[in-house]
Design a protein around this nucleic acid. Structure first.
Lengths: 184, 184
DNA sequence: GGAAATCTACTCGGATACCGCGTGTCCGAGTTATGGTGG
DNA sequence: CCACCATAACTCGGACACGCGGTATCCGAGTAGATTTCC
């Protein structure tokens, strides 16, 4: 985890819409246009969520994504790790080894164990991870549901269902099958 | 604060050397060469520490830096904020306002208060900041002093004092003052 | 001998290039529903 | 009426540019100390 990027923000917002999506399987494009953000960019995020086992993908014209687990079993930390990868908050450069007083060879007492500064950073990172792990998708969705008026959830469901039903329903060009050649 | 950069690591290491520097005022160059890192880069970090009131600078050939406060009054969080500036861990893009269901104008219930996702990130950041604020320069220095053998501290002091005494002591070119023109 | 003047080396401090990562976009491979076609 | 098949649109998934922030470097302004010179 480096610093929390906008990819993480998009990912969490998308997964929140999936919590109440019902039987619809919104595509990454549906979710992007529902939120007014770049469809290409959202499409780049979802493969990471799928590899981490947070969502499952369906192929084809009616395909899309749905949550792989109940929302109460998905923490914000899971999402952050899935999108940003295992990058630590702090990378120790082992400056302590290069002290000029050592004359080229660092003694064992200087290189043993974890660098004290590194240890502080690791504790801080662990505190942050603990805080992120305490919040689940279900909890976030509940908070949002309390703020929204009663009919909003079904409005969104209708919007998504309408998008899904419209896929491939209208063919721009009517089918013009080339007839088998009737003559010699 | 974004992600903890190597500037922060260099800064903390330098300040730790200053804790036990005694009366010597090491220059940024001294501290860099003591640790085997780029003097130019270290020289770029210290002005930030000075503006934040963590160190005081002395000009001139025997100039250098010393701590502005007792080391027990300088926390790791102070150093991180001084070097990285006030950047937050997470910048909310206010995606919630752009929901397509709203048709261009977001209702008040959607924009009021703090975004739920943003709130989670703020809590996580606060946990990290609390962890960083619990550790002081004095605490870190004590941990390191326990690891090092008895004579190490005075060895470093001698190294720094030697550097300081050598400054400007040997003139490469002896002074050749141009005499006032004696005759017209 | 004492004091002023001068010079040097060193310091801090900010302005300037290089590079990697994140953001954003595009295009190809694969799959499913569709609608016509023939038996 | 039913089974089959070719088509097309849509999906996912990865490969390709652009821009910004961090890393690293260099150079100028200013000052304290050391040396020299004069009274």
């Amino acid at each position: 985890m480096a610093h929390l990027t906008s990819s993480v923000e998009y990912g969490i917002h998308c997964l929140l819409w999936l919590v109440d999506a019902g039987d619809a399987q919104p595509s990454s494009r549906d979710l992007a246009e529902l939120q007014g953000v770049s469809p290409s960019f959202v499409a780049k995020i979802f493969p990471k969520l799928e590899k981490a086992g947070l969502v499952v993908a369906s192929q084809g014209v009616r395909g899309g994504y749905r949550l792989a687990r109940p929302p109460q079993d998905i923490t914000v930390l899971d999402i952050v790790d899935a999108i940003e990868g295992p990058k630590p908050l702090f990378e120790c450069l082992e400056v302590r080894r290069r002290c000029a007083v050592f004359d080229g060879e660092a003694p064992a007492w200087a290189t043993g164990g974890v660098c004290a500064i590194h240890a502080v950073m690791q504790r801080a990172e662990q505190s942050m991870r603990d805080a992120l792990a305490q919040e689940t998708l279900a909890g976030l969705a509940g908070t949002l549901a309390c703020k929204a008026p009663a009919g909003f959830g079904s409005d969104v469901q209708q919007w998504l269902s309408g998008r899904g039903a419209a896929r491939g329903a209208v063919r721009a060009v009517p089918m013009t099958r080339r007839r088998p050649d009737p003559s010699p």
